[in-house]
């Protein structure tokens, strides 16, 4: 029902905004590449019965740490990208493990805990890069520092990484640019998640999500399974964010990662997923529907009410409201 609602709203918004279909399709495709893997990252914790993992924002921050370090050491090109990926993944594994340990302590309250973990993570991240650089950590690349000498600048340009991957196999069909390589990368990740479901690990996820006690009766170490789920999710989030950043071409050091969790969750839910069940189909459908609505709302607001801000409020409400609605609709959880 939810996807249908989104579909109707998107169509209405498209009509009222007067935007060209070609433009919208282009934008949606770009966002598909940018946000695709991040939304996919949310699927695994849902499969393991842990609900929405708002702590994917931590995975995003790990990617950003890798990026900043790369800029700091002035690495560029493909080797730079590899460095970022490697650092990001290692950090994600570590943080994912810690988050998993935390969540095992708070069974039944995972979702609220992941939100708070996200906030705490943001705080630590900001502290390190705003106050740590220039005081405790000596920067290797003075260009990226603020003029006063302490803290990294708000915007870091990524010209050395821009367009490495984006332009591979770029095909133009009429108005629309189709980045085939990047789309295939996203599909590759989707296939990985699909494959995971057919492994013994995937079976344990299913078991743990159905019933913790029964899984334990079957000899499954539920703590380990849940930690694995979160670690995988965080690593995927890291990958997803790397794709996002390199697509944008510029890094907003202190704000790029904010709200990735909310919008990704909303997108997944828009595709018809629920707190306890999410598939790849939900993810893909959701991204298309959610982002279409996202793109057309401000212009539709302008045309309908003469105030683009109204369109923005509408889409914020839709994002948060979808999550609240999904929470309401889910049946109450058994401990």
């Amino acid at each position: 029902m939810v996807p249908l609602l989104f579909f109707v709203l998107s169509l209405a918004g498209l009509y009222f905004s007067g935007m060209s279909t070609g433009f919208v399709i282009n934008e949606v495709m770009t966002r598909f590449v940018r946000d695709g893997v991040m939304v996919l990252a949310l699927i695994i914790p849902i499969r393991a019965g842990m609900g929405l993992n708002f702590a994917v924002v931590v995975g995003a921050m790990c990617a950003q740490v890798g990026l900043i370090l790369a800029v700091d050491y002035q690495l560029s090109g493909l080797s730079g990208l590899c460095f970022i990926t490697l650092t990001g993944v290692m950090l994600s594994l570590l943080t994912g493990y810690l988050i998993g340990r935390c969540l095992n302590r708070v069974r039944g309250k995972e979702m609220i805990t992941t939100i708070i973990i996200g906030f705490v993570g943001t705080g630590i991240y900001q502290l390190v890069f705003m106050a740590g650089y220039g005081t405790v950590i000596t920067p290797g690349n003075p260009e990226m520092m603020l003029s006063r000498g302490i803290g990294i600048r708000n915007m870091v340009d990524l010209e050395m990484f821009r367009n490495i991957l984006d332009t591979i196999w770029l095909v133009t069909v009429g108005d629309v640019d189709v980045p085939i390589f990047m789309i295939m990368v996203v599909i590759l990740f989707a296939m990985i998640i699909g494959y995971l479901g057919k492994t013994p690990m995937g079976q344990t996820f299913k078991a743990v999500s159905q019933s913790n006690e029964k899984a334990m009766l079957n000899g499954i170490d539920t703590n380990r399974v849940r930690i694995s789920a979160i670690m995988i999710s965080t690593v995927l989030a890291c990958f997803g964010h790397i794709l996002y950043i390199q697509n944008i071409g510029m890094l907003n050091v202190y704000t790029a990662h904010l709200n990735t969790d909310i919008f990704s969750c909303a997108a997944l839910l828009a595709g018809g997923a629920s707190i306890s069940k999410a598939t790849i189909r939900h993810a893909f459908l959701g991204i298309i529907l959610f982002h279409t609505l996202f793109i057309v709302s401000p212009q539709a607001g302008q045309n309908l009410f003469g105030n683009p801000a109204l369109g923005e409020y509408f889409r914020s409400f839709v994002a948060y409201g979808t999550i609240a609605f999904a929470l309401m609709m889910s049946s109450s959880r058994k401990t």
Binding site: A207, Q210, S211, E213, N218
Partner: peptide, 24 residues
């Protein structure tokens, strides 16, 4: 075999029998 049923309802018979010891 426990007093409470320890089968995963949403899984198949084969999946339940081999849970944790699946062939790969």
């Amino acid at each position: 075999i426990h007093q409470e049923l320890s089968l995963m309802d949403m899984m198949t018979i084969a999946e339940n029998i081999k849970l944790g010891r699946e062939h790969v």
